[in-house]
Design a protein around this nucleic acid. Structure first.
Lengths: 210, 210, 210, 210
DNA sequence: AATGAATGAGAATTCATTCAT
DNA sequence: CATGAATGAATTCTCATTCAT
């Protein structure tokens, strides 16, 4: 239920009370049964509200999904950006990015499960909006990295951009995914340092290919 | 359409002709629209067959999904196992596993997309069957690794089992996923060596944690 | 937008300002989409008002429909009655009735479209009220006709009452209907004399049936 | 219930049995409550069938409406065309057109009520199809008239085309409409000759306007 | 084996209307 | 008087599945 904090961050104030409640229960349903298998009626029942209210606030089922996507990406980016402010040098950057990622997943497991779902149901509009936010989230990392001026920055330049995020977060994502679906039981937090070290090795030792 | 080969491998012979056709078109629909958004009618239309025929061959919509999951996992494991036969030592093993994984994804993109889908739609029965096959697929890797007797085997022992697969395939999976959803355009094949090297660094440099 | 005049005639004064605005936009929606397909929300949006205000002024959706029906019939009858004051003799009466009818339709096309809609949506109460007004509108014609004392009045007596209105206005109504739905493009005004002459022929030459 | 004949004419054969039943009950509902106020459930209940069957046969609610429109217009045109075969000269033509129109309305009152409903609910596709059929129905009259070679044909040429149908059928339509909605009680059949004579007067005496 | 008509539970969505502020 | 959030019944439509031919 800690994702309640996230929703308070993104939708603050009294007037958004019902909105937060609805999103909270929608998220739980989505995380538990999947987006398509969750019906409006299920959300309505859990939230002890009415269909009308749901449609009044979100217009659509897709509107709910979009709002959740948006909130999650926005929050994740804010946390990451804030943390990057304090970091100096590429290695610290990688440490912060992976560390924050793990923290966020552990603190918001339902949101994390939700983000891991393929976002197919989204129509053109919502999809575009999410794509943009996703783009921004990644872009922020690249921008920060390029502002660094330490010796490692040259090493980083050898890695193709499109590959970089996979090298940095691939293993972490993979483990978090396994943890969220209960295929492994050790919390990612315990492997935080290991995953940071592993990513750093991948990046720091990346050879120059012709 | 190269996944036709895969289906021929798993369902050979003349009598399975219609079965292959149905699975082929079902797969395409699933990969394009998602499992839930694909209706029997859509498959029927593409395959130019009849609802009756589909139910005759698969009993269920879940039956189709299960057959595809099964075929994919089985084929992926056969390819990997065959390749591992030739490998000697841990490093060659990692190389083979990542290499084969990339090859399989590139040769069977629709199957790969399909495997990346959350398999929530599956009922208890099918789900258990898939879980077992998945387990076997991973187990095979561990068994092979433990049979190796080179110096690196000691290094490997320092890595927690539940973390190993993420370190080995996490980055690769991450990049393949991005490629399959057209977020990046360079074929994974071009980064095969880079991904192998990166994984090997992660594993070989893994420190001993207390 | 000339129907604004009509509304000013029926609902004069400053205090009825919002009422007129709401009716005006409701009418446009009804004429464009039909009564059932028009939602309160659509009217609210066009009138840039609030649901509450609408319900305050009209109690009901049916209340809006009833008010419009009433206003239209009342206005049409007033115009006709005023014009009949000046007419002398049956032929002039027919001329005036058809002429005014065409003028009214051309000046209030949306109201005319609205009147042509089947008034099924109306509940018992409103329906009865409208039926009464409609009855009065027609009755006025018969009363006026019977007050005439010229030679033609004998001819008129040969025509069954229930048939008379159809003979007099049938063709005109038919053409106006076609014009309002854009099936023909020439304004009825251009055919005013022709329609008057045709109606007069039908009536004047009406033979005595056994 | 005589419209059952009409449906047998347009949808003959055993295999169309359910289709006819569904259309029959849909028509009754439409004629009684209006198109929008009739729900699929009402039709299903009367026809003692299933929602699925309805959608299987007509795809849409609009599909039902379209099928009924189409059947009505087609039948009306066939009857009229057949009758016109026997007619010689303009006057006989007018007689036949009005006579058949009245017969058709009296024999198929529900279909007639249905045709008198504004066809707003129809989407672009269906609407176009109906417009075409409607066009053909009218065109057939014009074509037949122009093939006549008697003296009256010159008189007819003075009447603008767009006006002709209103002059010919306006009064009849008006009376039938009133009869179908129970505003008058005498069957149109009794006024058949009167309406024919009246229309003929309108047409034959039509003066030349500048 | 193959076909496709028929079934009916269940899903998303709309909309008139009420009522607290 | 005005506002707009909230309600919930009703509607259209989808779709997996069955079964007679």
């Amino acid at each position: 239920m800690q994702q309640a904090d996230l929703l308070h961050r993104i939708y603050p104030g009294r007037r958004a009370e019902l909105k937060r409640i609805l999103l909270q229960h929608a998220l739980e349903c989505f995380a538990e049964f999947g987006i398509e298998a969750t019906s409006i009626e299920m959300i309505r029942e859990r939230a002890d509200s009415s269909v009308g209210a749901i449609y009044h606030h979100f217009k659509n089922k897709e509107g709910i999904v979009g709002a959740l996507f948006s909130a999650a990406l926005q929050d994740q980016m804010q946390q990451r950006t804030a943390a990057l402010q304090q970091a100096r040098g590429v290695q610290q950057g990688v440490t912060v990015i992976i560390g924050r990622y793990i923290d966020w997943v552990v603190q918001n497991p339902d949101f994390a499960r939700f983000l891991f779902m393929a976002r197919r149901g989204l129509g053109a509009e919502q999809n575009a909006a999410v794509a943009v936010q996703n783009q921004q989230r990644n872009q922020a990392v690249f921008v920060w990295l390029q502002q660094q001026a330490d010796a490692e920055i040259a090493q980083l330049a050898k890695i193709p951009r499109e590959l970089l995020l996979s090298l940095m977060l691939g293993a972490t994502e993979s483990y978090c995914r396994a943890w969220l679906s209960h295929k492994v039981s050790t919390t990612p937090t315990l492997y935080k340092q290991a995953l940071i070290d592993a990513a750093w090795q991948s990046i720091a030792q990346f050879p120059a290919y012709p």
